[in-house]
Structure formats: structure tokens, C-alpha cells
């Protein structure tokens, strides 16, 4: 016993290995089964991927650190369901790399904010939150309306997303830039391609009220308006029970 420990300590590597052995088990056991969980969760057939414009909006949401104050995860508690809507399902953030569940609600949860307010409300709220909610503590994001959205590299974004597992097609990747424009310009020829690739239900309109150019505000509002609406799974009782085994 003594000799064994003596060697263990003398080499220091013994301590290293023991620390790794003790330390890695917990994470492994909790994380590993989540990679096989797809087998038990019913797929939501209507689940669609983000359009290039919505993905760009999501990246702005990340860039500005919105997740620091807004969660996107409605818990299975009565008051949360009453306040925000049906509780969030795992499948709803299936394509979220990374997830934006958040950890703090300085502002309200946004998991189902899509469709709750008009585009105009969102734009006014971003420019000065206190114009529409007098006691709001949110910073102003007026510059979003001035910044032109960078769309050139959206194809690369979709490609990287596909590499991590989001089912974007070659066609979606090739047309990413045109689709971003098309989604904000309903009268243009590109608008049809968006509906064709991402579904008829895709919201195609000038989100910031100005169809002339694609701004970061367009992307941001497009993203906010799709939150909670990529699939109806959470609203349909059948799928809910399938996942409510938890």
C-alpha cells in the first residue's frame, strides 16, 4: 500500500490520471445519453430551418448579447405557460447552434415572441424601447436600422451550419444571399425562391418598413418574428405527450 502510493505521488502522473478519472465521469454520463436521445423524441415533421435572413438576425441577437437578459426556454410551470405560451420542447431548438436558452430574465422570455407584436412595434422598440414601454430598461438599438446587413458570406454561414448538422440543401446554400434579399422584398423575383425553399408559411415582407435595402433591423425583426414558429409541435397535444415522458 505504502509503496504503491509512494510511486503514485512520486510521479505526479498518478494524481493527474486520478483527477481525470474522477472528474470526467459525471459529464460523460450526463452528456453521452443526450446524443442518442433523438431515438426517443418524435421528430416534428413540420420543423424547418432558419432562412438566411433569420439566421443573420439570430447572429445579431448573439452579437449584441441579448441572451444575457432574455431567455428562450419556457419551463414546465403553470405560470410560465400562462405568461409565455406552451412550454418549450427539445425539438424546437434542434437546429440552434448554439442554443440560446439563456439563464436570466431581466426582460421577458422570447421563446414564443414571434407574431406577438407587429413589425412596426419591434422596430420602434429597438430604436427606443421607452417609446413603447416607458419603464423599459433595455438599451437602444437604433443603429440596427442604419446598418446594411452583410449578406455576401451567408452561403458560408449555411455551409458551416450544414457541417454541424443542420439540413441545408445545396440550393439553399447557393441562393443564400438572394434569399436574404428576397425575404425582405415581397415584390421582387427573389421572394418566390424563399417560399419555395423554406415553405409557403415563411414570412416575406419588408420587416423594417423599407423594402429598398436589407438592414440589420430587417434580419433582427425577421428572427424575432419566427421565434417559436419553426414548428407547431409545442401546440399539438400528440407530439407533446410523446415528449412529455420527461
Amino acid at each position: 500500500m505504502f509503496g504503491f502510493h509512494y510511486r503514485l505521488e512520486r510521479s505526479a502522473m498518478g494524481l493527474v490520471l486520478a483527477v481525470i478519472a474522477a472528474g470526467s465521469v459525471g459529464g460523460l454520463i450526463e452528456i453521452a445519453p443526450l446524443f442518442t436521445i433523438d431515438e426517443t423524441v418524435e421528430k416534428a415533421a413540420d420543423m424547418r430551418v432558419y432562412t438566411p435572413l433569420e439566421l443573420a438576425g439570430r447572429n445579431i441577437y448573439i452579437r449584441e448579447g441579448c441572451y444575457a437578459c432574455h431567455s428562450q426556454m419556457i419551463r414546465t410551470l403553470r405560470d410560465e405557460v400562462d405568461r409565455y405560451g406552451p412550454y418549450s420542447l427539445a425539438v424546437e431548438s434542434q437546429y440552434d447552434h448554439p442554443m440560446l436558452w439563456g439563464s436570466k430574465r431581466t426582460g421577458p422570455d422570447l421563446a414564443r415572441v414571434g407574431g406577438k407584436y407587429s413589425d412596426q412595434w419591434h422596430v420602434a422598440h429597438m430604436i427606443n424601447p421607452r417609446d413603447v414601454v416607458p419603464v423599459s430598461k433595455m438599451p437602444r438599438y437604433g443603429w440596427l436600422a442604419q446598418n446594411t446587413l452583410e449578406t455576401e458570406d451567408l452561403g458560408l454561414h449555411l455551409k458551416a451550419q450544414r457541417r454541424v448538422g443542420v439540413p441545408y440543401t445545396d440550393e439553399m446554400i447557393a441562393n443564400a444571399q438572394a434569399d436574404a434579399y428576397g425575404q425582405t422584398a415581397p415584390d421582387s423575383e427573389h421572394a418566390k425562391g424563399v417560399a419555395q425553399r423554406y415553405g409557403e408559411a415563411t414570412q416575406v415582407r419588408a420587416f423594417d418598413g423599407d423594402p429598398g435595402r436589407v438592414t440589420e433591423m430587417d434580419a433582427m425583426v425577421a428572427y424575432l418574428q419566427i421565434l417559436g414558429r419553426l414548428t407547431d409541435a409545442a401546440h399539438s397535444p400528440a407530439d407533446k405527450t410523446a415528449e412529455a415522458k420527461r
Partner: peptide, 20 residues
Amino acid sequence: VPISFGSAKSYSVFSGVQDA
């Protein structure tokens, strides 16, 4: 996975519940 080696932006290999 970075979107390219010329960009600061990357996407986590994990998504949704695994990522959480």
C-alpha cells in the same frame, strides 16, 4: 466550426439540448 478561416464567426458543433 468556423464559417471560414478568414472569419471570426463560428458555429458550435452542439445544438439545442445537447448544447445546453
